[in-house]
Design a protein around this nucleic acid. Sequence first.
DNA 1: CGCCCACTCTACAACGTTGTAGGCGCCCGT
DNA 2: ACGGGCGCCTACAACGTTGTAGAGTGGGCG
Lengths: 339, 339
Amino acid sequence: MASTLHDVAKLAGVSIKTVSNVINDYPHIRPATRARVEAAVAELGYTPNLTARSLRSGRTGAIALAVPDLGLSYFAELAASVIEAAEEAGVVVLVEQTGGDRDREIELLRSPRLKMTDGLIFSPLGMGQDDVARLEVPYPLVVLGERIFDGPADHVTMQNVEAARAATELLLESGRRRIAVIGAHEGEVIGSAGLRLRGYREALDAAGVPFDESIIGYTTLWHRSNGARCLHELLDRGVEFDAVFGLNDTLALGAMRALQESGRRVPEDVAVVGFDDLDEARYTIPSLTTVDPGRVWIARTAVRTLLQRIEAADAAGPPRLLLADFRIAERESTRPRSA
Amino acid sequence: MASTLHDVAKLAGVSIKTVSNVINDYPHIRPATRARVEAAVAELGYTPNLTARSLRSGRTGAIALAVPDLGLSYFAELAASVIEAAEEAGVVVLVEQTGGDRDREIELLRSPRLKMTDGLIFSPLGMGQDDVARLEVPYPLVVLGERIFDGPADHVTMQNVEAARAATELLLESGRRRIAVIGAHEGEVIGSAGLRLRGYREALDAAGVPFDESIIGYTTLWHRSNGARCLHELLDRGVEFDAVFGLNDTLALGAMRALQESGRRVPEDVAVVGFDDLDEARYTIPSLTTVDPGRVWIARTAVRTLLQRIEAADAAGPPRLLLADFRIAERESTRPRSA
DNA sequence: CGCCCACTCTACAACGTTGTAGGCGCCCGT
DNA sequence: ACGGGCGCCTACAACGTTGTAGAGTGGGCG
């Protein structure tokens, strides 16, 4: 079925290399020859064998993207943006799911499956700062997320502390003082949870509002159901609060549901802020105020940076840290009470 | 950096083929030789070059998945399931986004980019029944969705008519009689919209409820915002209804939001049913009754079917049509009024 | 008139792997 | 004692492509 350069060459009566030259737009070919070759290509429906080309050139034209799970909306939207950016750059994307599992992440990094790609955009969730040395891999790598800093690879990430601080300040400015947090991780310092919690505390400190451990809700998995469960636990504990900062949108949405189930009105009784600016956050009831952490920019930048490393044989430049701008998307869940 | 069989062979003092045999668990190798080779492999950190292996074997160990957009939750969840099933089968997945655009879909089918994969799982959105001949491609292909039937390729899909009928019957049984539809496509007969609308009409007919064109809402794009807009149009038209059938979940969720904005209570004033069983539907307020169309089964079956076609050199069996079982996930948005 | 260069094309090797054919030594059965 | 078969290993070719070296022609210029 599949025809090769060889078949085309035979049909056109030229050497195999001449066909290759026509395909690759090599300039010095007589129009007559070119026409003959093109006719043969058309007749046989020839398309180049990319595997052979890859073997010869050392480039596959594919990059890998490893995320925890496309079922998590943030990563689905991130993957959509990465694939779109890659498409514009003429490369395809191989998507792997790690489940956020540390062992699978580590295995993936040394997996020969990656040999089919020119580089990796990696969003770890299970690995942590202790695993920083494992990012030393023999292929171009761009790391996303907040699990590992100062590694040997380029790192594209968001301004977690600053953005969380701004989100908290928004709540404080609207008069809220008892701001519960949903999704904290016990003892975590870096990582999305740790950094966003730090931004929260910075905002409280700056405003002179005391930090209250009793309105911090802990949950490891950031899923809608955990947001709801976490908020129910706060309610069961009987603590008072007039706002909720969900450390991501799905947590906030789950919490919002739990609030309304318990008869509290959003935003009248409790204001809610999320983090991620999922598409979904615009269409919930009420719509969710959230932080747009620059997801699209992160995706584009990750792809662009990776391709630069791939193209530069001198890939040996020092690792770069690239930070996205953030933006607060103010919606109904934080409408002022008086409004 | 990358070491080859050649390097390992030299270090171990054996032929290159012997190293290959060790790597591929060929049984007849003396333990001493095997040990020497394995030591050399370990010392050099050798990993096989998959590109070369692919060229030699004619298999890449990768499949392609083409969907409209991972930003659409249904396709994100579908992709997650496909990748998971592929992972279990030991193959990786290259994801393409077509944007649901017919031209891009057609171009993708004949794209040499696919040469890097062993086959394609394709979920068209822009192509239609007229394009059925374009599915005749020189590689294994599994088609998903409801845009094209009776094509030359295997087709894995869901029971749209039956499931939509069941969803409508659920509403009818709870006493609703004026069931609005959100997301219909003008004049469409096949395609998700056409088929689901047919199931809706069948249910009405069977119950002796007259079909009323004035409560059918049309919108081409199935997005949350369109669901909301579509419902607002119905309200503006001043028509009465006591239930809404969103032809997919995002439409239903957008409609639910619009209903609540307009002061109607769900399910007391208006019951809502969706279609897709997105993860999200479980955590909205109220949670959304919806049709689980068998997404996980579809993904697994698509992968399994594709791999069978790839493995069987006799891939020439007649095309198969595989239908998933569906299930109604009954939740709060259709709670009986009296409850 | 002869030389050099530009143009057009070809032959060959190489990318790293695996299938095939075959060589060599040894044990077994006759 | 000898042929056959098995266990272990090697050499070579091939997958389809592209880079390199170079051959042959013709034109321009000294």
